[in-house]
Nucleic acid binder design. Structure first.
Lengths: 115, 115
DNA sequence: GATTCATATGAACATCTGCTCATACGTGCA
DNA sequence: TGCACGTATGAGCAGATGTTCATATGAATC
């Protein structure tokens, strides 16, 4: 039962005011989609590595100690979110970071957690 | 089988060099822990709201349309990560944001996704 | 001590997630 | 066209996650 606690009407007003300031549901969902990606250590490392150098799937695999299939699955997700791009060189695909904003988030947060 | 593709030794070197630049595993885990929190729309909204105003559990519940129990569970996680703090006023607990860095992440990313 | 109210916690459940394994697909080459 | 190599995809599995429900706990008051 969603009742506010036994307090004054001021609190209902506070909630009303705040409701207007809250970001739209779509914005929150888009925001969380990006953060969820970085919430996975594997994806975070892939994005970090790709911000430093373009890499092919098996280079990423070797760097992180994962199977080619696992890396490919993660790249699929990152591609769908437009966070990485690739260029083809014969049968090789070279991936790189496509969204500088995400790199900025990682960089800031790394500084923060190693403070 | 973790084999690099049939390329030159340059790629092995590239991976070696990159391995030195990668953040430490502990840092990556700490980073992902923060991002995982923001990856949940509910927690993201709670943190946003608490950056604007201190709120009690049932105010948050009313604002977001969640049960008191659901809000309390989320606050538990946020407290454990030192992202929120509270002050007591008789039997009421008022929560607020404790980590400006997280607000900064949310703010930047909201700007980014609403571009 | 009993009652009321605010908050926290645990169990259970449904859903989601990341990896492995097997296999399909795309490209280049002979 | 067939083969080799690089990459992608689907199914399955184990573990993680967020909410609900029931109940416990904490603080204040009488």
């Amino acid at each position: 039962m969603n009742l506010l606690c036994q307090t004054t009407a001021v609190d209902v007003q506070k909630v009303q005011e705040l409701r207007k300031e809250m970001p739209e549901e779509d914005s929150v969902r888009a925001l969380s989609r990006i953060f969820r990606v970085l919430g996975d250590p594997t994806k975070a490392k892939i994005l970090y590595a790709l911000s430093r150098s373009e890499l092919c799937v098996c280079e990423i695999s070797a760097l992180l100690g994962l199977t080619q299939s696992a890396v490919s699955h993660q790249l699929r997700v990152l591609k769908d979110l437009n966070l990485v791009r690739f260029r083809r060189e014969k049968k090789m695909l070279y991936y790189s970071l496509a969204d500088r904003h995400v790199y900025s988030l990682i960089d800031q947060t790394l500084s923060h957690v190693t403070e």
